[in-house]
């Protein structure tokens, strides 16, 4: 027997009671992930900004800051090659915190209480949104790439460069989703939304987001040098600036694994305390 529960977004979440008590982690997560994907169609206003902003950002930044490619030593003569990966990571990050926004909506409407009472593993309340987030990120990055290529972006190391970009994007979205869900559980209302966006924005811009480290001067250089997101952006840009190397990869992977572990632990702790 399958019980279905209507959600505020008009979608339904299915839990197969045959596997109760608990259901399976995979099945419950899949149900929640599908609900997250359905909301793309049912609540496009919540998804479209995460899709459109990176496109606008990539085009606007590469046009406005075109001249920086003329600085001696700049790693590419195509400004869009520098700004496209940044836009993809930014879009991925906002897709991640978008999961936090939808969780806040569920908390405020009371739908989240029904999810918590469902006979499914609590971990699925984190894993489900995370799966949905990854699928959204694949859509966002693919769309931004298509637009970017039509505006002159070119790969310098073939498909390997694309792999590096997708890994970086999925990593940023995982970190952002953990952070967004954690804040949603801690605050339980839309106060969390501003904090999610502000912190993500700062984390990504206090890096080599706009220019390479060697061009920076003063305080920003010192912060960007130690900000782990600098490594993630380096990972994402490899395939657009030259060859993909392990030297430019491992730092980004380490940052993704470390920060994801911290933010997902924060989300899990917030979820556990929600029941207290």
């Amino acid at each position: 027997m399958t019980a279905t529960s209507p959600s505020p977004a008009g979608s339904t979440v299915s839990f197969d009671s045959a596997s109760a008590p608990g259901g399976t982690l995979v099945r419950s997560s899949r149900g929640l992930a599908l609900r997250g994907l359905r909301s793309i169609v049912r609540l496009p206003s919540a998804f479209l900004p995460a899709m459109m902003m990176p496109i606008v950002q990539a085009i606007a930044f590469s046009g406005t800051f075109f001249a920086i490619t003329k600085i001696p030593g700049f790693p590419t003569d195509r400004s869009i090659n520098w700004y496209l990966p940044l836009a993809c990571c930014m879009g991925s990050g906002f897709s991640g915190v978008g999961m936090g926004f939808s969780t806040v909506r569920d908390l405020e409407s009371g739908f989240f209480d029904r999810l918590r009472m469902a006979p499914s593993p609590p971990l699925s309340l984190i894993l489900g949104p995370l799966l949905a987030c990854w699928l959204r990120v694949m859509i966002v990055i693919s769309t931004v790439l298509v637009v970017g290529f039509s505006f002159g972006a070119r790969l310098t190391d073939g498909a390997l460069g694309l792999v590096a970009l997708y890994v970086a994007g999925l990593g940023v979205s995982t970190i952002a989703a953990g952070w967004g869900l954690g804040l949603a559980y801690v605050f339980g209302d839309m106060r969390a939304a501003a904090l999610m966006q502000l912190t993500l924005f700062n984390a990504l811009f206090l890096t080599n987001a706009q220019t390479p480290l060697f061009i920076m001067t003063g305080w920003l250089h010192e912060i960007a040098r130690v900000n782990p997101f600098t490594n993630v952006l380096r990972l994402s840009r490899q395939g657009f600036l030259g060859e993909v190397t392990w030297g430019d990869t491992w730092g980004g992977l380490a940052a993704i694994v470390g920060l994801s572990a911290v933010t997902l632990w924060f989300a899990r702790r917030g979820l556990d305390r929600l029941g207290d």
Binding site: F65, I68, F205, Q210, T217, G218, L220
Partner: peptide
């Protein structure tokens, strides 16, 4: 502040 540190050389 970001621009001052990022683009001063520009």
């Amino acid at each position: 502040a970001l621009g001052a540190s990022s683009f001063d050389r520009a």
